[in-house]
Amino acid sequence: MPSIRNMLNLARPRTGDIPAQRQAQVPDRGDAAWQRLEEGNRRWAVGHSSAEAARGPERRAALVDGQHPFAMVLGCADSRLPTEILFDQGLGDLFVVRTAGHALDEAVLGSIEYAVAALGVDLVVVLGHQSCGAIKAAAHTLDDGTVPDGHIRGLVERLAPDMARGRQAGITELDDLSRWHASATVDLLRQRSNIVRDASEAKGLGLVAATYELGTGLVKRAEGIKPA
């Protein structure tokens, strides 16, 4: 049976397969990737999607031998948050991981590191949203001590510390807590992953916290609220 190291080497794209700007320091590559996502989101939000051809049989066939996504998105698993659709991207453009409340665990961290180290993405986005049920459940636990049953408990326990810190900073509205949590998750990525931190500091990897507005369909950077 092959070792884990050998399996990872087999899965890793050859250096020549990754665009040159992802192999060396290019300060603005993260900004360019975020602009591409913003433009796609604005097209989709007003009903002018242009990604249909990039989701068809020809694109599917072209991706059989490998993938070269330009961005990685860690988003909430909410059914109203279809990542590739709301960013108006095609097959193979985004490497996506979704968990309720975009909670981090070892599997999620490993997936993000794979996107950064093996696939060479230009950008990592943490995407929260309005009216997040996971955020609401965690805040509810803080308010009255009610703990959900089953594995939902573990999820809430991962989210509750951010809710508590947000409350201590004077943030009370759930949607503001969602923005806070997105920013806090980006900071946690830097703290817990040497791969992510080094890529952002040395090779121009972009790190963006953002939230999705259910009513307008727009994704906006989580600016103005920063974890302490």
Rank of each mutant, 00 (worst) to 15 (best):
H48R: 14
H151M: 15
P13M: 02
E113P: 06
A117P: 05
A117R: 08
D162G: 10
M7W: 09
L119D: 01
A199L: 04
L109S: 07
A115I: 05
F95L: 11
E39Y: 13
G204E: 00
E38I: 14
P69Y: 07
W44C: 11
R167N: 13
M7Y: 09
A139G: 08
T172H: 15
P148C: 01
P19S: 06
W34S: 06
G92T: 10
G206I: 02
V124S: 02
C76D: 00
Q191C: 11
R165I: 13
A100C: 02
D149M: 14
T141N: 04
V196W: 07
A138Q: 11
S111K: 03
L109M: 00
E223W: 12
Q25I: 14
R192P: 00
V64M: 06
S79Y: 06
Q130R: 06
G215P: 11
L123V: 05
E106D: 06
V186E: 00
S50G: 14
L177K: 02
W44L: 11
A117D: 13
F87Y: 09
L91W: 03
M72E: 05
I112C: 03
D93A: 09
H102A: 03
I4T: 13
R98P: 04
L81Y: 05
T146F: 10
Q67Y: 02
A71L: 00
G40V: 10
P82R: 09
L91F: 07
L74I: 11
S49L: 12
G120N: 07
D176S: 13
Q191L: 13
D187W: 11
A51M: 10
L214I: 07
T185Q: 07
M7G: 15
G75F: 08
I195C: 04
N9W: 06
P82F: 03
E213M: 08
R190P: 08
A182I: 07
A71G: 00
E39A: 13
G110A: 04
D28V: 14
Q191G: 01
R80G: 05
S111W: 06
D31H: 06
V186Q: 08
P13C: 03
H102L: 00
S183I: 07
T172V: 14
R29K: 08
R165E: 15
E52F: 15
L8H: 08
R153N: 09
R59M: 08
R22W: 12
F95V: 09
T15M: 15
S193L: 02
L91N: 03
P57S: 12
L214V: 01
A134H: 08
Q130Y: 09
A184I: 10
A115M: 01
I171M: 05
Q67C: 10
I195V: 15
A139I: 12
E113Q: 02
D31W: 14
L155E: 10
A11E: 11
W44E: 11
I112Q: 05
R14V: 13
V156I: 02
G110L: 02
L91Y: 04
A100T: 01
A20Y: 14
A160Q: 07
A209W: 05
Q67W: 03
L119W: 06
E213K: 00
H129F: 00
C132T: 12
I171H: 07
R80E: 07
V116L: 01
D144K: 12
N194M: 14
S178I: 08
V96I: 05
E58L: 12
A164K: 13
S200W: 05
A11F: 01
A103E: 09
A209M: 01
Q168G: 12
A45F: 02
G47R: 04
D162P: 10
G166R: 11
A169L: 04
P148F: 06
D28K: 13
